[in-house]
Design a protein around this nucleic acid. Structure first.
Length: 253
DNA sequence: ATAATAGCGATCTTAGCCTT
DNA sequence: AAGGCTAAGATCGCTATTAT
């Protein structure tokens, strides 16, 4: 049906990304069929991990809208052939230069493949019977081939975000513990006491206001745990002192 | 006519810092 | 905690040029 008479490279400069994605698209897909919008949602989640700009997804969404079916399936190329003008219309009026840049980014990322015609235009040629004899445009098949990989990347992104949230929560709780211990020690006229921890605690609170990666959060948690441990020791010593003086009064009685 | 690339200035986004 | 400010980098869109 969709007979291909072109290479995926067309007139463009060949890059390692293009060669890799062309080879990948030739591999049989693990899934028989995938929901194109589910793949798109997974890509949206894993966008940063795949190094895609957000507007590239706008362009991909526009490209997907030219595929008449909801599912991507089969062993043949899945080619859509909109002109840049039609594509720009469906990409919320994106300027064509920008559109081309993002099409190049999607190609380089191995999410779509180009099948260029001799004159660079995108179209479907039909034979005498009206059947498609050649189609020139963008091949969406890499999305089918890589659907499982994209879904896994989306899961990994969600897991990483959740892990980051938990680490942050842990740090907030540690800082809160330190604040409470410092408040307990402070009013009891401890000379070295809680005041020596005020500066590092302020530093931890300031750090919390920034965007932190997992390694930075781990380091801050360790730091907070060390401070809490020191404060706990001081608080315990203080309790001992209070108890001792209390016993004197009891003895007198 | 249509599509592609490249250069360049304009605009937007983000991180970090500071103030309230 | 929320919001404002700034600098740096990323992104955008216009334009010129070339290819088919």
């Amino acid at each position: 049906m969709q007979q291909l008479t072109t290479t995926p490279f067309g007139r463009r400069q060949v890059t390692s990304g293009l060669i890799a994605s062309a080879a990948r698209a030739a591999v049989p897909a693990a899934d028989d069929a995938v929901d194109k919008w589910q793949v798109f949602r997974d890509l949206t989640t894993a966008r940063a991990a795949l190094g895609l700009p957000s507007r590239a997804l706008t362009v991909l969404s526009a490209l997907l809208s030219f595929h008449p079916e909801t599912e991507l399936c089969g062993d043949d190329p899945i080619i859509v052939f909109p002109s840049n003008r039609r594509l720009a219309e469906r990409a919320h009026g994106m300027a064509e230069a920008t559109l081309r840049r993002h099409l190049a980014a999607l190609t380089e990322a191995g999410l779509i493949l180009r099948h260029d015609s001799p004159n660079g235009k995108r179209y479907a040629a039909r034979d005498g019977s009206g059947a498609l004899s050649a189609v020139f445009g963008f091949d969406l098949r890499p999305l089918l081939v890589r659907a499982a990989e994209i879904a896994a990347a989306a899961r990994a992104t969600r897991d990483a975000a959740e892990a980051l949230r938990r680490k942050r929560e842990c740090l907030v709780l540690l800082i809160r513990d330190c604040d409470k211990l410092a408040a307990f020690i402070g009013p009891r006229d401890d000379p070295a006491g809680a005041a020596s921890h005020t500066t590092p605690l302020a530093g931890l609170r300031a750090a919390l206001r920034r965007k932190l990666d997992a390694a930075a959060l781990d380091q801050l948690c360790n730091c907070a745990a060390t401070i809490r441990s020191a404060l706990e020791t001081q608080a315990a010593a203080l309790c001992q002192t209070v108890q001792s003086s209390g016993q004197d009064a009891q003895t007198e009685r």
